[in-house]
């Protein structure tokens, strides 16, 4: 049975689409339009009670949490490649995924909200400063890890890199300058630039542009 991913190209589902492209696994993407509240329909709430995207369905497995879905996909289809064979490597893939969700995402996601959805004059400058302060030690940590090895878990690309880069893209999108962390810059360019992700990002770009226009119109209509 084909894997189903619920979510649009302008949602955290892109992280999973990137993973599926890396793995070369067949899948079907089911777009849910949150402006039309399709993520709150009774049918969708049955598979994801919080009404969030993405959700993965693979046979009898139904999962939410984008980074958790990626761990599942790596474990099922990426053994020895995206999912290391050794206990220590596997432990660190999970560590970096939880770190990306618990430490990195809260520091960088609100920044996108300020930069992408708000006009320059409406930005909360105090929040932006606070977020930057929170982000610096996280980048120091990554720089340290990437000074010891080419990728976060040893010298090969793994689900750890994909999950962390999938969150770091928020810094990229909100023009956060990471030049003072050169190893991280090089790692991000190589990782985020992978063909599998570029395919997803290429499909996403025009959809994102159209979506942004709709969000602006929607927020105006909400007064």
């Amino acid at each position: 049975m084909t894997i189903k991913i619920y979510g649009s190209l302008v949602s955290r589902a892109t992280r999973n689409l990137w993973m599926l492209e890396e793995l070369g696994v067949d899948y079907e993407r089911i777009d849910l339009d949150w402006i039309k509240q399709e993520n709150r329909s009774p049918d969708y709430l049955k598979i994801n009670p919080a009404g969030q995207v993405p959700t993965l369905i693979d046979g009898d497995v139904t999962l939410s949490e984008s980074l958790g879905i990626n761990l599942y996909l790596a474990q099922k289809f990426g053994g020895g490649v995206l999912w290391p064979d050794d206990d220590a490597g596997q432990a660190r893939c999970i560590q970096w995924s939880v770190w990306a969700a618990g430490e990195l995402e809260p520091a960088v996601y609100p920044r996108v909200y300020e930069f992408v959805f708000k006009k320059a004059k409406d930005r909360d400058d105090a929040l932006i400063v606070k977020l930057a302060e929170r982000t610096l030690p996280l980048l120091d940590l990554m720089e340290g890890a990437l000074s010891a090895s080419a990728y976060l878990v040893g010298d090969a690309f793994s689900v750890a890199d994909l999950n962390v880069a999938g969150v770091m893209e928020y810094l990229d999108r909100s023009d956060f300058d990471i030049a003072q962390w050169p190893k991280t810059v090089a790692w991000y360019e190589t990782t985020y630039g992978r063909a599998a992700n570029q395919k997803v990002q290429g499909e996403r770009a025009p959809v994102a542009e159209a979506m942004l226009k709709r969000i602006v119109e929607h927020s105006r209509s909400e007064g």
Binding site: V61, L63, S64, E65, L67, G68, I69, L71, Y72, Q75, I94, S97, V98, A101, G102
Partner: peptide
């Protein structure tokens, strides 16, 4: 996979 999902939900 459900254990991993709930762990990320918690975080």
């Amino acid at each position: 996979s459900a254990c991993q999902q709930w762990t990320l939900f918690a975080a």
